[in-house]
Amino acid sequence: MKRAPLPPGSLDNTDCRVLNALQDRLPIDHSPFAEVAGPLGLTVDELIARIARLRELGAITRFGPFLDAAAMGGAFCLCAISVPEARFDEVMTLVNAHPEVAHNYERQHHLNMWFVLACEKPEGIARVAKRIEAETGLHVHLFPKLKEFFIGFRVTA
């Protein structure tokens, strides 16, 4: 995934409006894009072409359903490992190989690898964490959420 900002002028006003509009939920019906395209003054085909271009440019990382593991009876858990610098790539490969690892970030800290486990069953968290510990020989700190306060942030493009 791209981490550099897009060059200035990559997105026009319509692109920004498309990005803002698509952070709201898309309707689940026969022509979901029609309801979004109308207020933007676009045809469905134009809207689809814009989304495809935004994806190619790397302005969006994903377009699709966001799932809640907990609602399915599963669980998410934030985890962190303190990885010796010399082993970073090796450990990253071992951690990322698990399909339960949904995201993984390097951060500047003694605990320098932070990843999220998404499991279909709550007991999966401890199982995968133990497996990662066995594979890497490193302790996995578990930070399950006890309470979530807000999750409505939007990027204004």
Partner: peptide, 9 residues
């Protein structure tokens, strides 16, 4: 499904 939407970069 929380929503169907884009994840902006």
């Amino acid at each position: 499904i929380r929503r169907i939407a884009v994840a902006p970069n």
